[in-house]
Amino acid sequence: MTTTAPAITPATAAVLARIAAERGRQDALWGEQNHPDGTGPHAELTGLLRRAADAAHTARFTTEIARAEGRLTWLHILREEVYEAFADADPAALTEELIQVAATAACWAEAIDRRTRPTGGGA
């Protein structure tokens, strides 16, 4: 069976390069970081006074309502992904959730770049 890597658009490559550069800056500033995850369904989320599992459920619900009502935003989508990650304690599942967070953030950055790119008005 032959598999191929997914094609990466130039826009995605540009965002990933910026992410890689930021990771380099983080490592230069802080060195290798090895903190506890601090996640799980019972993790307390500062300022929300609720369990992470409850916040994840609420985020999924509000995202679906916003989608159904035609007012879905990137904030809804990324918040849902982040809260789902916060609620996961299993290392493998948490890693997958964090990949989804990173991919969603990259997609949002690409959308901003498209939206703010100067149009090539010629003479």
Rank of each mutant, 00 (worst) to 15 (best):
W108G: 01
G40P: 04
A14M: 02
P118M: 04
E110V: 09
F61S: 00
E84Y: 12
A85L: 12
A56I: 15
E96D: 11
D90L: 05
C107S: 14
P118Q: 05
R71P: 05
A106Q: 08
E80N: 05
L16T: 00
E69G: 09
I112R: 07
G120W: 15
A106T: 00
I19V: 11
L72V: 03
R114D: 14
R51T: 06
A123C: 10
C107E: 12
I65K: 14
A105N: 06
R23A: 07
E110C: 09
A14C: 01
R117W: 01
I112A: 01
R18D: 05
D113L: 14
P41M: 09
P41T: 11
F61Y: 05
G70F: 08
A92I: 02
Y83T: 11
A14I: 07
L98R: 15
R23N: 11
G121L: 06
T63W: 08
A13D: 04
L98S: 03
D27P: 00
R18I: 00
A20K: 02
E110S: 12
N34W: 11
T63D: 13
A109V: 10
R114W: 09
A123V: 12
E44W: 05
A53H: 05
E96K: 10
G31E: 03
E22R: 14
H42A: 07
G31P: 06
R50T: 06
R79D: 14
L98T: 15
P118K: 10
A43L: 02
L49M: 06
G122L: 15
E32H: 11
E81C: 14
D113I: 15
A53Y: 05
A89I: 10
D54Q: 12
R117A: 15
A93E: 13
T63C: 12
